[in-house]
Write a protein that binds this DNA or RNA. Structure first.
Lengths: 195, 195
DNA sequence: CACCGGATTTGACGATCATCGAATCGACTG
DNA sequence: CAGTCGATTCGATGATCGTCAAATCCGGTG
Protein backbone atom coordinates (compact mmCIF):
# COMPACT_ATOMS: atom_id res chain seq x y z
CA UNK A 1 0.00 0.00 0.00
CA UNK A 2 1.26 3.45 -0.81
CA UNK A 3 -0.80 5.26 1.76
CA UNK A 4 1.85 5.26 4.41
CA UNK A 5 2.47 8.33 6.47
CA UNK A 6 4.30 10.15 3.77
CA UNK A 7 5.32 13.11 5.89
CA UNK A 8 7.27 11.40 8.63
CA UNK A 9 8.42 8.64 6.34
CA UNK A 10 9.75 10.96 3.70
CA UNK A 11 11.52 13.13 6.20
CA UNK A 12 13.16 10.10 7.72
CA UNK A 13 14.33 8.92 4.34
CA UNK A 14 15.85 12.23 3.35
CA UNK A 15 17.50 12.55 6.71
CA UNK A 16 19.04 9.14 6.24
CA UNK A 17 20.37 10.22 2.87
CA UNK A 18 21.68 13.56 4.09
CA UNK A 19 25.06 12.40 5.33
CA UNK A 20 28.15 11.74 3.29
CA UNK A 21 29.22 8.73 5.32
CA UNK A 22 25.86 7.11 4.81
CA UNK A 23 25.97 7.80 1.09
CA UNK A 24 29.33 6.09 0.97
CA UNK A 25 27.88 3.16 2.88
CA UNK A 26 25.03 2.88 0.40
CA UNK A 27 27.46 2.97 -2.49
CA UNK A 28 29.45 0.19 -0.87
CA UNK A 29 26.50 -2.15 -0.36
CA UNK A 30 24.61 -1.30 -3.52
CA UNK A 31 25.43 -4.53 -5.32
CA UNK A 32 27.21 -6.86 -3.00
CA UNK A 33 26.37 -7.42 0.67
CA UNK A 34 29.03 -6.59 3.20
CA UNK A 35 29.55 -7.24 6.85
CA UNK A 36 30.14 -4.48 9.34
CA UNK A 37 33.84 -4.96 9.87
CA UNK A 38 34.56 -4.81 6.18
CA UNK A 39 32.59 -1.63 5.80
CA UNK A 40 34.47 -0.07 8.66
CA UNK A 41 37.79 -1.04 7.11
CA UNK A 42 36.92 0.18 3.63
CA UNK A 43 35.56 3.51 4.73
CA UNK A 44 38.26 4.01 7.29
CA UNK A 45 35.85 4.58 10.17
CA UNK A 46 35.21 2.86 13.48
CA UNK A 47 32.86 -0.07 13.83
CA UNK A 48 30.45 1.72 16.16
CA UNK A 49 30.12 4.47 13.60
CA UNK A 50 29.18 1.92 10.97
CA UNK A 51 26.68 0.35 13.30
CA UNK A 52 25.15 3.72 14.04
CA UNK A 53 24.72 4.64 10.40
CA UNK A 54 23.36 1.24 9.47
CA UNK A 55 20.73 1.67 12.12
CA UNK A 56 19.72 5.01 10.67
CA UNK A 57 19.53 3.52 7.18
CA UNK A 58 17.61 0.58 8.55
CA UNK A 59 15.01 2.76 10.21
CA UNK A 60 14.51 4.43 6.85
CA UNK A 61 14.04 0.95 5.39
CA UNK A 62 16.85 1.41 2.93
CA UNK A 63 18.67 -1.86 3.53
CA UNK A 64 18.11 -5.52 4.09
CA UNK A 65 20.29 -7.73 6.23
CA UNK A 66 21.03 -11.42 6.25
CA UNK A 67 22.49 -12.88 9.40
CA UNK A 68 25.18 -15.48 9.11
CA UNK A 69 26.70 -15.72 12.57
CA UNK A 70 28.91 -14.21 13.60
CA UNK A 71 28.48 -11.93 10.59
CA UNK A 72 25.63 -9.79 9.50
CA UNK A 73 25.58 -8.91 5.81
CA UNK A 74 23.92 -5.71 4.76
CA UNK A 75 22.60 -4.90 1.33
CA UNK A 76 20.95 -1.85 -0.15
CA UNK A 77 17.24 -2.15 -0.80
CA UNK A 78 17.16 -0.15 -3.98
CA UNK A 79 13.44 -0.64 -4.49
CA UNK A 80 12.72 0.99 -1.19
CA UNK A 81 15.03 3.83 -2.10
CA UNK A 82 13.24 4.42 -5.37
CA UNK A 83 9.87 4.31 -3.69
CA UNK A 84 10.97 6.81 -1.10
CA UNK A 85 12.30 9.13 -3.72
CA UNK A 86 8.99 9.13 -5.56
CA UNK A 87 7.55 11.04 -2.66
CA UNK A 88 8.67 14.23 -4.32
CA UNK A 89 7.99 13.28 -7.91
CA UNK A 90 4.75 15.20 -8.48
CA UNK A 91 3.18 18.38 -7.20
CA UNK A 92 0.53 16.30 -5.48
CA UNK A 93 3.10 14.28 -3.57
CA UNK A 94 4.99 17.37 -2.56
CA UNK A 95 1.82 18.98 -1.36
CA UNK A 96 1.16 16.00 0.84
CA UNK A 97 4.40 16.66 2.63
CA UNK A 98 2.86 19.48 4.60
CA UNK A 99 -0.32 18.60 6.48
CA UNK A 100 -1.94 22.03 6.05
CA UNK A 101 -1.93 21.58 2.31
CA UNK A 102 -3.54 18.16 2.27
CA UNK A 103 -6.51 18.78 4.51
CA UNK A 104 -10.07 17.95 3.71
CA UNK A 105 -12.65 20.61 3.05
CA UNK A 106 -13.88 20.82 6.62
CA UNK A 107 -10.42 21.29 8.08
CA UNK A 108 -9.56 23.88 5.48
CA UNK A 109 -12.69 25.86 6.23
CA UNK A 110 -12.16 25.75 9.94
CA UNK A 111 -8.58 26.86 9.62
CA UNK A 112 -9.51 29.68 7.29
CA UNK A 113 -12.23 30.85 9.64
CA UNK A 114 -10.18 30.79 12.80
CA UNK A 115 -6.77 31.76 11.60
CA UNK A 116 -5.79 35.16 10.31
CA UNK A 117 -2.25 34.51 9.15
CA UNK A 118 -0.33 33.65 12.28
CA UNK A 119 -3.03 34.90 14.62
CA UNK A 120 -5.94 32.94 16.02
CA UNK A 121 -9.11 34.99 15.81
CA UNK A 122 -10.74 33.15 18.70
CA UNK A 123 -10.63 29.89 20.55
CA UNK A 124 -13.22 27.49 19.11
CA UNK A 125 -15.93 26.28 21.40
CA UNK A 126 -17.06 23.23 19.47
CA UNK A 127 -15.08 20.14 20.21
CA UNK A 128 -14.41 19.23 16.59
CA UNK A 129 -13.22 22.67 15.63
CA UNK A 130 -11.12 22.98 18.72
CA UNK A 131 -9.43 19.75 17.79
CA UNK A 132 -8.58 20.97 14.31
CA UNK A 133 -7.29 24.30 15.53
CA UNK A 134 -5.17 22.83 18.28
CA UNK A 135 -3.59 20.32 15.97
CA UNK A 136 -2.69 23.16 13.66
CA UNK A 137 -1.19 25.05 16.57
CA UNK A 138 0.96 22.09 17.49
CA UNK A 139 2.02 21.80 13.89
CA UNK A 140 3.33 25.33 14.04
CA UNK A 141 5.07 24.77 17.32
CA UNK A 142 8.82 24.38 16.85
CA UNK A 143 9.88 20.90 17.81
CA UNK A 144 11.64 20.62 21.13
CA UNK A 145 12.07 17.78 23.52
CA UNK A 146 10.69 19.97 26.28
CA UNK A 147 9.44 23.49 26.76
CA UNK A 148 9.74 25.82 29.71
CA UNK A 149 6.48 27.52 30.56
CA UNK A 150 7.79 30.95 29.63
CA UNK A 151 9.04 29.56 26.38
CA UNK A 152 5.70 27.97 25.60
CA UNK A 153 3.90 31.19 26.49
CA UNK A 154 6.05 33.11 24.11
CA UNK A 155 5.13 30.74 21.30
CA UNK A 156 1.43 30.76 22.05
CA UNK A 157 1.32 34.51 22.50
CA UNK A 158 2.18 34.89 18.87
CA UNK A 159 -1.10 33.23 18.01
CA UNK A 160 -3.44 34.54 20.66
CA UNK A 161 -3.25 37.05 23.52
CA UNK A 162 -4.87 34.64 25.95
CA UNK A 163 -2.05 32.17 25.77
CA UNK A 164 -2.74 30.92 29.29
CA UNK A 165 -6.11 29.51 28.31
CA UNK A 166 -4.64 27.82 25.30
CA UNK A 167 -1.82 26.38 27.33
CA UNK A 168 -4.31 25.00 29.85
CA UNK A 169 -6.45 23.50 27.13
CA UNK A 170 -3.45 21.86 25.52
CA UNK A 171 -2.88 20.02 28.77
CA UNK A 172 -6.53 19.17 29.33
CA UNK A 173 -6.90 17.89 25.82
CA UNK A 174 -3.82 15.75 26.34
CA UNK A 175 -1.97 17.38 23.49
CA UNK A 176 0.85 18.10 25.89
CA UNK A 177 1.97 16.83 29.26
CA UNK A 178 3.17 18.92 32.13
CA UNK A 179 5.77 17.47 34.42
CA UNK A 180 7.59 19.43 37.10
CA UNK A 181 6.97 22.72 35.33
CA UNK A 182 8.27 21.35 32.06
CA UNK A 183 6.01 20.79 29.07
CA UNK A 184 6.32 17.98 26.56
CA UNK A 185 4.46 17.06 23.42
CA UNK A 186 2.23 14.05 23.95
CA UNK A 187 3.26 10.88 22.17
CA UNK A 188 0.32 10.72 19.87
CA UNK A 189 -0.04 8.66 16.75
CA UNK A 190 3.19 9.55 15.12
CA UNK A 191 2.67 6.45 13.00
CA UNK A 192 5.97 5.30 14.32
CA UNK A 193 8.01 3.74 11.66
CA UNK A 194 9.38 0.54 13.06
CA UNK A 195 7.15 -2.34 12.11
CA UNK B 1 26.25 19.78 -18.16
CA UNK B 2 25.68 16.70 -16.12
CA UNK B 3 29.30 16.06 -15.35
CA UNK B 4 29.09 18.03 -12.17
CA UNK B 5 30.35 16.55 -8.98
CA UNK B 6 27.42 14.29 -8.36
CA UNK B 7 28.52 13.35 -4.87
CA UNK B 8 28.59 16.82 -3.40
CA UNK B 9 25.57 17.86 -5.39
CA UNK B 10 23.49 14.92 -4.28
CA UNK B 11 24.49 15.40 -0.71
CA UNK B 12 23.51 19.04 -0.83
CA UNK B 13 20.12 18.18 -2.26
CA UNK B 14 19.32 15.59 0.36
CA UNK B 15 20.52 17.86 3.09
CA UNK B 16 18.18 20.53 1.86
CA UNK B 17 15.32 18.04 1.95
CA UNK B 18 16.20 16.68 5.37
CA UNK B 19 14.39 19.23 7.46
CA UNK B 20 10.71 19.33 8.28
CA UNK B 21 10.45 23.09 8.04
CA UNK B 22 11.96 23.06 4.60
CA UNK B 23 9.61 20.30 3.46
CA UNK B 24 6.72 22.42 4.63
CA UNK B 25 8.14 25.35 2.73
CA UNK B 26 8.39 23.27 -0.41
CA UNK B 27 4.82 22.10 0.00
CA UNK B 28 3.69 25.68 0.38
CA UNK B 29 5.37 26.93 -2.75
CA UNK B 30 4.80 23.89 -4.91
CA UNK B 31 2.02 25.36 -7.01
CA UNK B 32 1.70 29.03 -6.31
CA UNK B 33 4.55 31.44 -5.60
CA UNK B 34 4.64 33.02 -2.17
CA UNK B 35 6.49 35.87 -0.62
CA UNK B 36 8.58 35.51 2.51
CA UNK B 37 6.23 37.19 4.93
CA UNK B 38 3.34 34.98 3.93
CA UNK B 39 5.43 31.90 4.35
CA UNK B 40 6.51 33.02 7.78
CA UNK B 41 2.92 33.64 8.78
CA UNK B 42 1.56 30.38 7.44
CA UNK B 43 4.20 28.26 9.00
CA UNK B 44 4.23 30.22 12.23
CA UNK B 45 7.94 30.92 12.15
CA UNK B 46 10.07 34.06 12.08
CA UNK B 47 11.04 35.81 8.90
CA UNK B 48 14.79 35.27 9.35
CA UNK B 49 14.11 31.57 9.68
CA UNK B 50 12.26 31.56 6.39
CA UNK B 51 15.06 33.47 4.76
CA UNK B 52 17.60 31.02 6.06
CA UNK B 53 15.74 27.99 4.76
CA UNK B 54 15.06 29.58 1.41
CA UNK B 55 18.75 30.16 1.04
CA UNK B 56 19.46 26.52 1.74
CA UNK B 57 16.85 25.43 -0.79
CA UNK B 58 18.24 27.92 -3.26
CA UNK B 59 21.76 26.61 -2.96
CA UNK B 60 20.37 23.17 -3.74
CA UNK B 61 18.74 24.75 -6.79
CA UNK B 62 15.29 23.69 -5.74
CA UNK B 63 13.46 26.96 -6.21
CA UNK B 64 13.10 29.90 -8.50
CA UNK B 65 12.35 33.43 -7.41
CA UNK B 66 10.74 36.37 -9.09
CA UNK B 67 11.37 39.80 -7.64
CA UNK B 68 8.48 42.17 -7.48
CA UNK B 69 9.59 44.93 -5.16
CA UNK B 70 9.26 45.04 -2.34
CA UNK B 71 8.26 41.39 -2.53
CA UNK B 72 10.18 38.38 -3.64
CA UNK B 73 8.07 35.45 -4.74
CA UNK B 74 9.48 32.00 -4.40
CA UNK B 75 8.36 28.93 -6.27
CA UNK B 76 9.42 25.33 -6.22
CA UNK B 77 11.40 24.15 -9.21
CA UNK B 78 9.90 20.70 -9.38
CA UNK B 79 11.88 19.70 -12.43
CA UNK B 80 15.13 20.40 -10.65
CA UNK B 81 13.88 18.47 -7.66
CA UNK B 82 13.03 15.44 -9.76
CA UNK B 83 16.32 15.57 -11.57
CA UNK B 84 18.28 15.86 -8.37
CA UNK B 85 16.50 13.02 -6.74
CA UNK B 86 17.02 10.68 -9.67
CA UNK B 87 20.68 10.62 -8.72
CA UNK B 88 19.94 7.63 -6.56
CA UNK B 89 17.40 5.87 -8.69
CA UNK B 90 19.69 3.24 -10.22
CA UNK B 91 22.52 1.07 -8.93
CA UNK B 92 24.89 2.84 -11.28
CA UNK B 93 24.11 6.24 -9.91
CA UNK B 94 24.36 5.04 -6.35
CA UNK B 95 27.71 3.52 -7.10
CA UNK B 96 28.90 6.84 -8.43
CA UNK B 97 28.30 8.38 -5.06
CA UNK B 98 31.50 6.91 -3.75
CA UNK B 99 34.07 5.89 -6.35
CA UNK B 100 35.50 2.64 -5.00
CA UNK B 101 39.24 3.13 -5.36
CA UNK B 102 39.42 2.56 -9.11
CA UNK B 103 38.51 -0.51 -11.07
CA UNK B 104 39.30 -0.76 -14.72
CA UNK B 105 36.71 -1.69 -17.29
CA UNK B 106 37.78 -5.31 -17.58
CA UNK B 107 37.51 -6.01 -13.89
CA UNK B 108 34.12 -4.38 -13.72
CA UNK B 109 32.81 -6.44 -16.62
CA UNK B 110 34.09 -9.69 -15.24
CA UNK B 111 32.62 -9.02 -11.85
CA UNK B 112 29.27 -8.08 -13.33
CA UNK B 113 29.23 -11.21 -15.42
CA UNK B 114 30.13 -13.66 -12.70
CA UNK B 115 28.46 -12.16 -9.68
CA UNK B 116 24.76 -11.99 -9.05
CA UNK B 117 24.61 -9.95 -5.89
CA UNK B 118 26.24 -12.11 -3.27
CA UNK B 119 26.20 -15.28 -5.34
CA UNK B 120 28.77 -16.47 -7.80
CA UNK B 121 27.10 -17.68 -10.98
CA UNK B 122 29.91 -20.04 -11.88
CA UNK B 123 33.60 -20.58 -11.34
CA UNK B 124 35.58 -18.98 -14.18
CA UNK B 125 37.74 -21.26 -16.26
CA UNK B 126 40.03 -18.67 -17.80
CA UNK B 127 43.03 -17.86 -15.72
CA UNK B 128 42.61 -14.09 -15.94
CA UNK B 129 38.94 -14.11 -14.99
CA UNK B 130 39.54 -16.61 -12.24
CA UNK B 131 42.11 -14.27 -10.82
CA UNK B 132 39.74 -11.32 -10.79
CA UNK B 133 36.91 -13.31 -9.26
CA UNK B 134 39.04 -14.85 -6.55
CA UNK B 135 40.48 -11.52 -5.57
CA UNK B 136 36.96 -10.22 -5.24
CA UNK B 137 36.06 -13.20 -3.08
CA UNK B 138 38.96 -12.51 -0.81
CA UNK B 139 37.96 -8.88 -0.65
CA UNK B 140 34.58 -9.96 0.66
CA UNK B 141 36.08 -12.35 3.16
CA UNK B 142 35.96 -10.87 6.63
CA UNK B 143 39.46 -10.23 7.86
CA UNK B 144 40.80 -12.75 10.32
CA UNK B 145 44.24 -13.91 11.26
CA UNK B 146 43.22 -17.48 10.60
CA UNK B 147 40.16 -19.44 9.58
CA UNK B 148 38.96 -22.87 10.63
CA UNK B 149 37.91 -25.03 7.71
CA UNK B 150 34.28 -25.10 8.83
CA UNK B 151 34.28 -21.36 9.13
CA UNK B 152 35.75 -20.89 5.69
CA UNK B 153 33.25 -23.31 4.24
CA UNK B 154 30.37 -21.44 5.77
CA UNK B 155 31.54 -18.22 4.25
CA UNK B 156 32.22 -19.64 0.82
CA UNK B 157 28.88 -21.42 0.81
CA UNK B 158 27.16 -18.07 0.76
CA UNK B 159 28.72 -17.43 -2.62
CA UNK B 160 28.63 -20.80 -4.26
CA UNK B 161 27.29 -24.28 -3.43
CA UNK B 162 30.48 -26.00 -4.44
CA UNK B 163 32.54 -24.36 -1.73
CA UNK B 164 34.97 -27.27 -1.57
CA UNK B 165 36.22 -26.62 -5.09
CA UNK B 166 36.66 -22.97 -4.40
CA UNK B 167 38.49 -23.67 -1.17
CA UNK B 168 40.83 -26.02 -2.96
CA UNK B 169 41.47 -23.52 -5.74
CA UNK B 170 42.23 -20.81 -3.23
CA UNK B 171 45.01 -22.96 -1.90
CA UNK B 172 46.28 -24.03 -5.30
CA UNK B 173 46.32 -20.46 -6.55
CA UNK B 174 48.27 -19.52 -3.44
CA UNK B 175 45.64 -17.06 -2.33
CA UNK B 176 45.55 -18.87 0.99
CA UNK B 177 47.80 -21.21 2.88
CA UNK B 178 46.74 -24.26 4.80
CA UNK B 179 48.69 -25.16 7.85
CA UNK B 180 47.72 -27.82 10.35
CA UNK B 181 44.06 -27.60 9.35
CA UNK B 182 44.10 -23.83 9.75
CA UNK B 183 43.73 -21.46 6.80
CA UNK B 184 45.52 -18.15 6.45
CA UNK B 185 45.42 -15.39 3.88
CA UNK B 186 48.55 -15.25 1.78
CA UNK B 187 50.69 -12.18 2.26
CA UNK B 188 50.01 -10.54 -1.04
CA UNK B 189 49.64 -6.90 -2.02
CA UNK B 190 46.08 -6.27 -1.03
CA UNK B 191 45.60 -3.02 -3.00
CA UNK B 192 44.66 -1.70 0.36
CA UNK B 193 42.20 1.11 0.78
CA UNK B 194 43.45 2.78 3.94
CA UNK B 195 45.27 5.97 3.26
C1' DC C 1 32.02 -23.58 31.32
C1' DA C 2 35.16 -19.86 29.61
C1' DC C 3 36.63 -17.83 25.45
C1' DC C 4 36.55 -15.52 21.07
C1' DG C 5 35.18 -12.23 17.72
C1' DG C 6 31.78 -9.54 15.42
C1' DA C 7 27.87 -6.40 16.41
C1' DT C 8 25.84 -3.18 19.31
C1' DT C 9 25.15 0.02 23.13
C1' DT C 10 26.77 3.70 26.13
C1' DG C 11 28.77 7.99 27.16
C1' DA C 12 31.27 11.92 25.96
C1' DC C 13 32.97 15.46 22.95
C1' DG C 14 32.97 18.51 19.09
C1' DA C 15 30.81 20.22 15.00
C1' DT C 16 26.84 21.54 12.70
C1' DC C 17 22.46 23.56 12.50
C1' DA C 18 17.75 25.60 13.34
C1' DT C 19 15.80 29.37 15.47
C1' DC C 20 14.96 34.05 16.75
C1' DG C 21 15.79 39.10 18.08
C1' DA C 22 18.15 43.00 16.67
C1' DA C 23 20.42 45.37 13.29
C1' DT C 24 20.99 46.24 8.43
C1' DC C 25 20.02 46.46 3.55
C1' DG C 26 17.42 48.01 -0.47
C1' DA C 27 13.98 49.70 -3.25
C1' DC C 28 10.11 52.24 -3.72
C1' DT C 29 6.95 56.38 -2.04
C1' DG C 30 5.57 60.81 -0.49
C1' DC D 1 15.52 63.41 1.43
C1' DA D 2 13.24 60.90 5.14
C1' DG D 3 10.03 57.12 5.86
C1' DT D 4 8.29 52.52 5.10
C1' DC D 5 8.21 47.73 4.58
C1' DG D 6 9.90 43.43 3.10
C1' DA D 7 14.11 40.77 2.79
C1' DT D 8 18.48 39.73 4.61
C1' DT D 9 22.51 39.43 7.66
C1' DC D 10 24.60 38.99 12.28
C1' DG D 11 25.16 37.04 16.70
C1' DA D 12 23.77 34.13 20.26
C1' DT D 13 21.58 30.09 22.05
C1' DG D 14 19.96 25.60 22.41
C1' DA D 15 19.37 21.22 20.16
C1' DT D 16 20.80 17.65 17.13
C1' DC D 17 24.06 14.70 15.24
C1' DG D 18 28.47 12.34 13.75
C1' DT D 19 32.33 10.29 15.75
C1' DC D 20 35.00 7.17 18.52
C1' DA D 21 36.76 4.64 22.76
C1' DA D 22 35.23 1.60 26.22
C1' DA D 23 31.98 -1.50 27.75
C1' DT D 24 28.49 -4.84 26.72
C1' DC D 25 25.92 -8.20 24.18
C1' DC D 26 25.52 -12.45 21.79
C1' DG D 27 26.30 -16.64 18.92
C1' DG D 28 29.25 -20.30 18.23
C1' DT D 29 33.45 -22.92 19.50
C1' DG D 30 36.88 -25.50 22.13
Amino acid sequence: MDTRDSTADTLQTFRALADSTRLRLLAAIVDRPRCGQDLAAELGIAAPTVSHHLKVLGRARLLSETRQPPYVFYQLDLVALQRAVKAVSTPQRVRELAPPASVDAETRDVLRNFFDGPRLRSIPAQRRKKEIVFEELLRRLPRRREYAEAELNRFLEVHHPDFCTIRRELIMGRYMQRDAGVYRLAERGRAVVDA
